[in-house]
Design a protein around this nucleic acid. Structure first.
Length: 371
DNA sequence: TCTGGGGTCCTTTGACCC
DNA sequence: TCTGGGGTCAAAGGACCC
């Protein structure tokens, strides 16, 4: 008889509950129990995180802050403070690494943990949660399963403070009637296309003819969608990977039509971006701009130079030339600049990255799909 | 209701070369 | 000389995630 724990409980997904709000509550304990929303302050700000009290009023992430105020006028609105969130996150991940050797950090508030070799994964995770709470007062939700996909969906299933352990078969059964968008990698667009095929549950997607999916989504995505619906996934908990691009972008409070104002904003962002790149010893060859018009259409223009660079003057000049060549025909709501194709293997950059621990988490699977 | 910022990766298209 | 296939690279757009 094969041990169930050995074969089925290989991965945990740990997810801090309402992370940014929870960090704010550490500083503002008097706000506990009240609706709290972390959001920017401009007219076009969106909600970063809402406390569970605020969510009862319909406030949610990525919602315009103006709408959140209408839905819940009594909520306390706080500006985001990423410096502090990063610090708390770092402490939390340190505790995690004290319990589990292989940890794949994804963003500030979540991580995949490789449970292989742990004597009792459930008990180990309970201990970890207790320790995180003791040292940071944060609560987390945990999902445990045979792969990252099951673990991720399980951790989402009973938030906050959830603790859900599922085999792959149990996950299929439990979420059979859930919409396909429940699994990561299936967003609103793909869900809508699936609905057009009459596939509006995970069970339906899991048993859909592969040929139908391939015809509609192509061979890669078509097969992958069906595998996801079956909670099949072989991505390893894993190896950190190098960032391949870095960017700065800004949405204007009001749409801009004045070319001089656009040039000034772009030049400032190019300078900022290059200061950051230089500080970490990173350079890239492809310089790109992003322009979002007032009707929300988004255009990118890119130019690749012969040598990797983080030279502010060069990046600025290329960005300005790209903007001039495109010459937006409508008012502009967002401008951005990006340096991509960041050189891998330049020794100085590697050293600094290692010191800073600033590698991004591994995205792990093929396609766009996370997990 | 009116949609942030910072990322990753896939697909398609076209240019270029052999 | 013309044509086509196939590979590679760059650009652009788009979907998705935290």
């Amino acid at each position: 008889m094969v041990s169930l724990e050995g074969t089925e409980l290989r991965v945990a997904h740990l997810d801090a509950d309402a992370f940014y709000v929870s960090v704010e509550l550490l500083r503002h304990p008097e706000l506990r129990g009240r609706p709290v929303v972390v959001a920017g302050s401009g007219p076009r700000a969106v909600v970063t995180t809402a406390s569970y009290e605020a969510r009862r009023y319909g406030v949610g992430s990525a919602m315009p802050a103006s709408r959140a105020r209408r839905l819940c006028p009594q909520a306390v609105f706080l500006p985001p403070d990423f410096t502090t969130y990063r610090e708390v996150s770092r402490r939390m991940m340190e505790l995690v690494r004290g319990h589990v050797e292989r940890v794949e950090v994804v963003g500030l508030d979540e991580a995949y943990l490789d449970l292989e070799g742990l004597y009792s994964p459930r008990a180990a995770m309970r201990r970890l949660l207790a320790e995180i709470h003791k040292h940071t007062q944060l609560t987390c939700s945990v999902g445990i399963g045979p792969n990252k996909l099951v673990a991720k969906v399980a951790s989402d299933a009973e938030k906050p403070a959830g603790f859900v352990v599922l085999t792959r078969q149990e996950a299929c059964a439990r979420f059979a009637s859930a919409p396909p968008g429940l699994v990561p990698g299936i967003g609103p667009k793909t869900a809508a296309r699936l609905a057009e095929l009459g596939l509006s549950t995970l069970a339906a997607l899991a048993s859909a003819p592969e040929q139908l999916l391939i015809e509609r989504f192509g061979p890669n995505l078509g097969r992958e969608l069906r595998r996801r619906a079956r909670f099949e996934h072989d991505g390893e908990v894993g190896a950190a990977r190098k960032a391949v691009s870095e960017s700065r972008e800004r949405t204007f409070d009001h749409d801009v039509s004045d070319p001089a104002q656009m040039r000034e904003a772009l030049a400032r962002m190019a300078q900022e971006l290059c200061t950051g790149l230089a500080a970490h010893g990173r350079r890239g060859r492809t310089i790109a701009i992003k322009v979002r018009l007032d009707d929300f259409t988004t255009v990118t223009r890119a130019h690749t130079v012969s040598e990797p660079t983080c030279d502010a003057k060069l990046v600025r000049d290329v960005a300005l030339r790209l903007l001039e060549a495109y010459s937006p025909s409508r008012p502009v709501r967002l401008l951005g600049v990006r340096v991509a194709g960041l050189a891998a293997g330049d020794a100085e950059g590697e050293r600094k990255r290692a010191q800073d621990g600033c590698d991004v988490g591994e995205a792990s699977s093929q396609l766009i799909l996370p997990v």
